[in-house]
Design a protein around this nucleic acid. Structure first.
Lengths: 155, 155
DNA sequence: TGGAAAGATTACCACACTGGTATGCTTTAT
DNA sequence: ATAAAGCATACCAGTGTGGTAATCTTTCCA
């Protein structure tokens, strides 16, 4: 399935909600109703978002959350890495040292390339792109045919 | 971490081993020693590979496995989908109907775009690419800078 | 034609991870 | 001082993954 976790998805959801209201601070309660998440779950999400520096929190009375920077400056990669850790398709792409299966090591650099490609994609898509749904319009599947592989890779 | 499962990794490993010997059939035992996997684990991997039509099996005495087609014709996407099922970053990208959290639905088409992008990448990288490690040479990270986002997306 | 070689099928289990929830602590404005 | 609000921690159930074994079926060949 190659999926991201639900928490990551929730993270985007929250960021979207925060982007919607601009610079206004939002409390946990407000975000809960805006996103449909429970307060408990939200807390966990917010912690990750704050730790990653994507959201700024203000404690105490009249506190709340707001985006640390504009939606155009928030890369999907940042969000994914905040929740899932470093993008590493295989164990080896993460720490090249502790390979259990020796023979697989010959393939490591091949996987690294794929990994790199995916990261390039995720780092080029921003929260704003996802919010505005611009990607799907720009990407009819007929637009890219098999001949364009080299161009895509060499860009 | 956004990782693929170990079994998927093993799958690539096996395909690599099969590619190495060309048209010669390989038995489970031979593949086990070639890959460093146990026979039991291999059996599970082989079933998936055969079911997906990536590998052809011949039963009975003097049986064995061989690639169903050339490494250039085996897309990484095929392998990933064989082991992981359809690529779907979020639940919604898979079946748009059963959205639990209503508000998230506004973001679905945004995610679909990202999903589509990833699939495009994975469908353009072949087993041969990974084996020859051509990707990493073609992809110094300096080659793609932030300005090229639009070009990548519109390609 | 029977036995050996080889793949196919099924089932089971331990472990880790994810998602969800609750409980209590610390900070800050008024 | 007190209430509002975020922070930290811990716990638990369900699920998925990876690993392994036991048994069945097919095919070749002596």
């Amino acid at each position: 399935m190659l999926k991201i976790g639900k928490l990551t998805d929730y993270g985007i959801l929250v960021l979207d909600a925060l982007a919607q209201v601009g610079a206004v601070k939002q409390s946990t309660e407000e975000l809960a109703t805006a996103t449909g998440l429970t307060v408990s779950t939200l807390r966990k999400v917010m912690k990750t978002l704050v730790d990653a520096g994507l959201v700024i929190a203000r404690r105490g009375a009249h506190g709340g959350y707001k985006l640390a920077r504009s939606p155009q400056q928030i890369r999907i990669l940042d969000v994914v890495e905040a929740f899932e850790g470093p993008v590493a398709l295989t164990e080896c792409s993460q720490s090249a040292s502790d390979c259990e299966i020796q023979s697989s090591c010959s393939l490591v650099s091949g996987w690294m390339g794929v990994n790199e490609l995916l990261m390039q994609i995720l780092s080029r898509v921003t929260l704003e792109d996802v919010r505005q749904q611009t990607l799907s319009q720009h990407l009819p599947s007929t637009l890219l045919d098999a001949n364009q592989r080299i161009r895509l890779i060499n860009l």
